[in-house]
Design a protein around this nucleic acid. Structure first.
Lengths: 197, 197
DNA sequence: TGTCTGACAGATATTGAAATCTGTCAGCGG
DNA sequence: CCGCTGACAGATTTCAATATCTGTCAGACA
């Protein structure tokens, strides 16, 4: 067996992402994926138990790749307030960029988010953990004053749904959007900062 | 012409709301409305230029009725922080109650909100004005410290989309919801309050 | 005179038959 | 033995014919 010809989950995911991009979520079929790989569609089911699981796996890969910068920001050091602001702005920018540059994959993500799929839940939990990391750094630095870091991280995430949940994507292009983001971030930062009278 | 038989916009709205409740947004037709009123559907078009305008008018009525308590709260007096908290909780409760008790009308509202209809934009602006009223009262009372009241009101509104935008209605029934609302409100109140060191 | 009717054209929705897709599995071939 | 194939059943989607709906308007009727 030639190495280039071995059918691996990774190769299937790659092909599935291509097919999703080409045909869109509604039109892409498992048969299309198999055809792209030049195998029978039965072979695909040898690696993924269902079309849904395949779609979920592709979305997970896509989300993980998109979120790498955010993980780095959260793991980094430096003053927490600036880092939190940067993190939120980066999160919004990534989403905004994806909705323009990769609309078909974004639509897939939207469908997943609306179906309350496990992958998206996991992804959201991860996001909250990243925020929590920055918040607890901020508490350690004496910059933030927070009772319950985890709960507050969740609140910050909830407060920003409008700019990361795909259901609101249509609003992201509006001209007043940036200034509203500024106001929201300012409000949230004031909500976690220690009071310097 | 008997008074009970005069075809008024109000009677049409009443009948349309009934028809929407009975058949749902997807099934309700102008012919159904006309039938309920025992007139030809042409007569309905004498009072409303299109089905969309009729639907918008019904939704406006419904939203206005639902929001009366919020207007009263904003117009009232008393300490602004408590009033803001009460206002937000009331807003969430109203939505939550509607989604349970009046699901068909709520679905209509959801469709409208997703279509970015003018009536929903106007309604959102009104909500922001009510928040702004409470915020400016708070500033006058020395309880809040806010640069730009209008902008901050918008930010508070944006921060709470998750609990008033119908796209997130499915999440409102979850058991962890109340505590997340508590955390969000606490965060936002801290964000507008003056710092009492 | 002004409101309402009912027939009409074009747009939209429904329906059921045919095509395609998903997921399974017995068996082929390296 | 192991991964793959291809035929299959049931579920889902497509497609085109048909029916219904929206929006208009000339004319009836009070």
């Amino acid at each position: 067996m030639n190495e280039a010809v071995v059918l691996t989950p990774e190769r299937i995911l790659e092909a599935t992402e291509d097919v999703l991009r080409r045909y869109g979520l509604t039109k892409a079929t498992v048969v299309d994926v198999a055809r792209a790989l030049d195998v029978s569609h039965g072979s695909v089911y040898r690696h993924f138990p269902s079309k849904a699981s395949l779609r979920d796996a592709v979305a997970k890969r896509w989300l993980d790749r998109a979120n790498e910068p955010l993980c780095k920001l959260a793991a980094g050091s430096g003053p927490a307030p600036e880092r939190l602001e940067k993190w939120l702005r980066t999160a919004f920018n990534i989403k905004q960029k994806k909705v323009c540059d990769d609309p078909e994959m974004f639509a897939t993500y939207l469908a997943l988010a609306q179906g309350a799929r496990e992958v998206v839940e996991a992804y959201k939990d991860k996001q909250v953990d990243l925020i929590a990391k920055i918040l607890s750094d901020g508490v350690a630095q004496g910059e933030f004053e927070i009772d319950d870091v985890k709960t507050t991280a969740r609140a910050v995430f909830d407060a920003t749904v409008r700019y990361h949940h795909p259901a609101h994507a249509e609003e992201w292009a509006k001209p007043e959007c940036p200034s509203r983001i500024d106001a929201l971030i300012a409000l949230l930062l004031r909500g976690v900062r220690v009071c310097k009278q």
